[in-house]
Write a protein that binds this DNA or RNA. Structure first.
Length: 265
DNA sequence: ATGGTCGGAGCCCGA
């Protein structure tokens, strides 16, 4: 089974790229973040025509929004309102894997604004609170059984998850406090970093490149903001990883690229 | 030395 996570930055605008991706890579399940539209505006007809007839959608007007689409049936489990702000940042489903049902969580963690200081930046405080709640949620049983957590976590935790560790120490997404919070999330749920299972920690690994660079590929100032975590029970099922870096060079791209994992069971 | 660019909404905000 192939599962892809992709921050699409407006699913309506990017639907031609989604179609191109699905035709080329043929994943079983696609998890999207930043869909930026209400559920009624989600391009379900286009996706259905591509063979993705099953969907679980948690959208809102203009901001955030997550969705899971699939070739095989999905069972909606929850749309959890972390931090109780009414943001559409989580959805979970059950999907049938070769070795039994899998619980799949799709997250869009708050970006956190520009200033890494909770006393002057409420968006940063929201991000840290969101991560604390994720930690509690994982510690209280969410990571038990066959569970996968994917999405844009808006944190690049390791030194080689950013183009320059030193230059980004005070830049939101790579500050020590955020890295510590995400590390605590992983510890509390015994989550396995599936991407780093395949790519050694000493190797650069990015999923996002800013729109502000004149030439994203030449400067290659990327960050690994998108993640795939699996519970211990799925650790042995990890088959293959593909980060589709070239998608950043497509016509009118998202600033994030699709990340696909294969599960053997 | 510190902009630079997107998307969606509606002439700014969030990323």
């Amino acid at each position: 089974m192939k599962i892809t996570t992709w921050n699409i930055n407006s699913v309506r605008l990017r639907m031609p790229l989604v179609a191109q991706f699905l035709k080329e890579k043929d994943p079983d399940v696609l998890c999207l973040q930043e869909t930026k539209c209400r559920d009624a505006e989600f391009p379900m007809k286009d996706l259905s025509a591509l063979g993705y007839k099953h969907a679980a959608i948690n959208g809102q007007k203009g901001y955030h929004g997550v969705a899971i689409v699939s070739k095989e049936p999905l069972r909606l489990l929850e749309k959890r309102d972390f931090c109780e702000k009414g943001d559409a940042r989580h959805i979970s489903v059950e999907v049938e894997g070769a070795g039994g049902p899998i619980t799949l969580h799709n997250f869009y963690v708050p970006a956190g604004g520009d200033e890494p200081d909770v006393s002057i930046n409420p968006k940063f405080a929201h991000k840290l609170n969101f991560l604390d709640e994720m930690k509690e949620w994982g510690a209280n049983g969410a990571a038990k059984g066959r569970v996968m957590l994917v999405g844009d976590l808006n944190i690049a935790p390791l030194e080689h998850d950013v183009w320059s560790h030193k230059a980004l120490l005070k830049v939101v997404s790579h500050t020590p406090i955020e890295v510590e919070k995400l590390t605590n999330v992983c510890r509390a749920g015994n989550w396995i970093d599936a991407m780093r299972h395949f790519v050694p920690a000493e190797e650069k690994l990015f999923t996002w490149w800013s729109y502000r660079a004149a030439d994203w590929a030449a400067s290659n100032r990327g960050r690994r903001l998108d993640h795939i975590l699996v519970s211990e029970a799925l650790g042995g099922a990890l088959g293959k990883l593909e980060v589709l870096t070239q998608a950043r060079g497509w016509e009118r791209p998202s600033d994030h690229v699709p990340v696909t994992i294969e599960l053997s069971e």
